[in-house]
């Protein structure tokens, strides 16, 4: 299988000189889904931003489809990568339909093709197009906005999708629904996916591999089953929090 994303001993320093990532290496084949877990500030979001070249590595190389990100035209690179952030970042002055259809518009699709695609996407993320297409973001609930954010990221059918805690701000029920819907979507589309999460069940559900980031290093990167059996102390620490919340459920 050909590689979608590759990190070759990538280090990244913040403009202040503070090291964020050090010597990170991994390879992701096309169609794989990498879940990044770890404490806040460990550098997970930086990994995503290095892939779509919001950041450039201080040392080492980031390759997308075998080409260094610094050699890509940043605009072309980003149009091939869907990006979902926790704050969603919908454009408040545009309707839901125009938000979702933005990348196709930038890519110069015909109006009718964009409309068809937008309606298809809204149905896919569970928003009835006839009710939601003409609304503005401030007229939506948090969960609905997040759905629009996911639809917008995949609108031009990018081969690679990056998600930064895409379901983080949601209540547990809506989150579980969206995770399952996204899982089904992913099964149909076979995109390459890199996502950051604090939710271990989400990492296991959507990830084909789980990578644990600690102090800017990728300390463990394994398929979910093996990850859960890992003896690495930081993995153990993450898993203990999971068991704690499960035992809480049992007691009730």
């Amino acid at each position: 299988m050909s590689t979608a994303v590759e990190f070759r001993s990538v280090s990244f320093r913040h403009v202040s000189g503070r090291p964020v990532l050090s010597q990170m290496s991994f390879t992701l084949s096309k169609g794989e889904a990498l879940a990044l877990v770890g404490r806040s500030g460990s550098g997970k979001t930086t990994v995503l931003k290095l892939i779509n070249r919001l950041f450039e590595p201080s040392a080492g190389e980031v390759l997308v489809e075998g080409v260094q990100t610094t050699a890509w035209d940043p605009i072309r690179l980003r149009r091939r990568i869907g990006y979902v952030i926790q704050e969603v970042g919908l454009f408040p002055h545009l309707t839901v339909a125009r938000n979702v259809g933005l990348v196709p518009t930038l890519e110069g699709w015909e109006a009718e093709r964009i409309r068809v695609r937008v309606w298809e996407l809204l149905r896919m993320v569970g928003l009835a197009p006839e009710r939601f297409a003409d609304r503005y973001p401030h007229e939506l609930s948090g969960g609905q906005r997040q759905r629009v954010g996911v639809a917008r990221a995949v609108a031009a059918d990018p081969p690679l999708v990056l998600m930064d805690e895409p379901f983080g701000a949601l209540d547990p029920i809506t989150r579980a629904e969206l995770q399952q819907e996204f899982k089904d979507l992913q099964a149909q589309m076979k995109r390459t996916l890199v996502f950051v999460t604090h939710d271990m069940p989400e990492a296991c559900l959507l990830g084909s591999r789980i990578g644990l980031v600690q102090d800017g290093r990728l300390v463990e990167c394994l398929p979910p089953g093996e990850f859960l059996r890992s003896k690495h102390p930081e993995v153990q620490a993450v898993l203990r929090t999971l068991q704690a919340s499960e035992s809480l459920n049992v007691q009730r």
């Binding site: 919001l54 990006y83 970042g89 919908l90 002055h93 930038l106």
Partner: peptide
């Protein structure tokens, strides 16, 4: 909102598109 600007850049907007389609209208 910085998230709006970040989303626009990450979607592959050029500087000019960012200004005319997002920043000035907002």
């Amino acid at each position: 909102d910085p998230a709006v600007r970040e989303a626009a850049v990450a979607m592959g907007m050029t500087d000019r598109q960012l200004l005319w389609k997002v920043e000035l209208p907002l």
